[in-house]
Design a protein around this nucleic acid. Sequence first.
DNA 1: GGAAATTATATTGTGCACAACTCAAATTAC
DNA 2: GTAATTTGAGTTGTGCACAATATAATTTCC
Lengths: 156, 156
Amino acid sequence: MSLCEDSGPLALNRQLCFALYAASRAVTRAYQPMLQDLGITYPQYLVLLVLWERDTEEGGDAGTSVGALGERLMLDSGTLTPLLKRMEQRGLLERRRASRDERVTLVSITDAGRALEPRARAWVEQQLDASAVSRQEVEQLHRQLWQFLEKLGGSG
Amino acid sequence: MSLCEDSGPLALNRQLCFALYAASRAVTRAYQPMLQDLGITYPQYLVLLVLWERDTEEGGDAGTSVGALGERLMLDSGTLTPLLKRMEQRGLLERRRASRDERVTLVSITDAGRALEPRARAWVEQQLDASAVSRQEVEQLHRQLWQFLEKLGGSG
DNA sequence: GGAAATTATATTGTGCACAACTCAAATTAC
DNA sequence: GTAATTTGAGTTGTGCACAATATAATTTCC
């Protein structure tokens, strides 16, 4: 790919920032068949991943606050609030105010939301098996990305 | 980071897809001070990178078609057309129809657009020098991302 | 050479991201 | 105990992404 080969004063860094940007969108595109089948979007899927996870923990059904979701997904309320409302309208989750602190909105998964988990899991497993990318490559890339993310966060 | 450590049925793949998504947004955030200084957005910066590059080639000023830009940035006309119109309004580039083929819109950089290049380059160089991430790490991550992108494209 | 198919861009509509702001509830300081 | 501050969601406005569609110019095929 020519983007990967040429050089120039801005080339090195552009390529990392652009490679990240392009790879992120490519992965979202790769998820589209599954997401369309489930009737959700990619960020909605990420929200479900967090809720599914909390759901299987003990004492899980207290709900997850919008703030906790945002910290986990690195998204703010301006993104999450309308997204969660759409998911609530589709019956995938419920939102209610916390009685202990009325400022907090607690989100909890519904049965309809739970029902999507095995379908998503099956698809992901199948993709990993069928993929040209080995699990080892996936793990290595993942590790490097988190190292990079931590250094970005630490240095500004 | 707990996102990087826990496990579960959907964990491995989620972490790569989410790591890419989070890293891409983190990089965009890291560019914000420079972008705000130049008065542009991140995708607009990517467009300028392509135009700056073509500008320094010989016979560069024939302009770049919307299609060529889209292929390079992996974006379609639905994204590019309004973005390019905003950049045109800010005087960073010009759009005109190709005389050889009236379907084609040619984009060419203006002096105002050219003037941003040294400022962007200086900032990027400075960031690379000041960063906690070594150039070697940047290069390795970049290489792996392109390998991954090529495999994604090849296998679906 | 004219109808049909193709191509390049533009338009429309939905859903993120995110900055900036509002507002109410809770905390703190005094 | 109440005024000032902080905190957690929500709102508003701008700008991507991208699917689906539209439109007009070009090419292809008889």
